[in-house]
Design a protein around this nucleic acid. Structure first.
Lengths: 162, 162
DNA sequence: GGCAGATCGATGACATGTCAACGAAAGCGT
DNA sequence: ACGCTTTCGTTGACATGTCATCGATCTGCC
């Protein structure tokens, strides 16, 4: 591959637009979330994933995989959230090395009061700006890319296979 | 707004897909970039923006605005890049408080040798997975969102207007 | 049973990003 | 020329993310 295939004008426009949107959307959503609910996006995602489970509790491993976070990151983050009273750690019955994260009442309260505003922000700054066709296209295209990248946890491996 | 308008199935699919793609794409592109060129995405973006200017140099302010970075972040990052010999800081002729970032030969070398592989990765994991219509749709939709969010630097202000 | 290797989660050192504050220098109105 | 305000970039304290490592436990195989 001597001569790389650079992006043509349309591709470049899509790529730059994507990166810029990403950044601006992040900034704005994070700003509103902090202001309105006192949560970071990371906090919100953790609480949101937990609240989607029947018991409001998940194995640490399971949660890390769903969020595509490293276990280390999750562990550190949970320590901070625990100190704020949003979650607790419980021992895991069937696996003595593991533990379970659980929503506290305060955590459930936090996500339930934050969610409407956050969803509204997502609508205001993204979804409601798109035509139905664009929503579908975005859904199709993102899922295709996700599948291609192996939606499965691309967990960093420690072993270097021969 | 008592009853929030939740996302319907299609919207939810688009939103979740977007977030997941974002994360996976980031991880993969960063991984390849580090491995192939020894650069982080942040490094790449800085070098890339600089190399797009005629002189390979920019006011710090200007660069920060283009990248939607805080000046603090840029300043810290440049310090690190400077230590690695990728850029230098020069005094600014027409404004004694400012300075100018400039690509070093090593910096130019770094971006020029990293770019083909990076573009190829962007193609492989995103662009080439899309139909031409999807590329156009992505371009249109992202730019609309960017405009809506005020593409202009939403610089954090220190003043709280009444 | 018992050992070898994998997995789980925690931890500490370090890299990176954010935030508030600062000194220096411009801009601006008078 | 003089102050008042803004802008520029840096800095240090702190929040957050990454990476390597660890002890404990589980799993599979003998």
């Amino acid at each position: 591959m001597d001569t790389p295939r650079w992006l043509d004008a349309r591709e470049d426009r899509a790529w730059r637009g994507y990166r810029r949107m990403r950044r601006l959307l992040d900034l704005e959503l994070a700003r509103e979330l902090t202001q309105d609910a006192g949560l970071s996006e990371a906090d919100y995602d953790v609480l949101s994933d937990l609240s989607e489970t029947p018991q409001g509790r998940l194995r640490l491993r399971e949660l890390a995989d769903r969020m595509l976070w490293s276990r280390s990151r999750l562990s550190h983050h949970l320590t901070r959230m625990q100190q704020r009273g949003l979650v607790t750690r419980e021992e895991c019955a069937d696996d003595a090395r593991g533990s379970v994260v659980a929503l506290t009442p305060a955590g459930r309260q936090a996500i339930e009061s934050a969610a409407p505003g956050h969803v509204a922000a997502v609508r205001r700054h993204l979804i409601d700006l798109l035509t139905p066709a664009e929503v579908d296209a975005l859904g199709a295209l993102t899922h295709r890319v996700v599948d291609h990248l192996g939606g499965r946890a691309p967990r960093p491996r420690h072993d270097a296979e021969v």
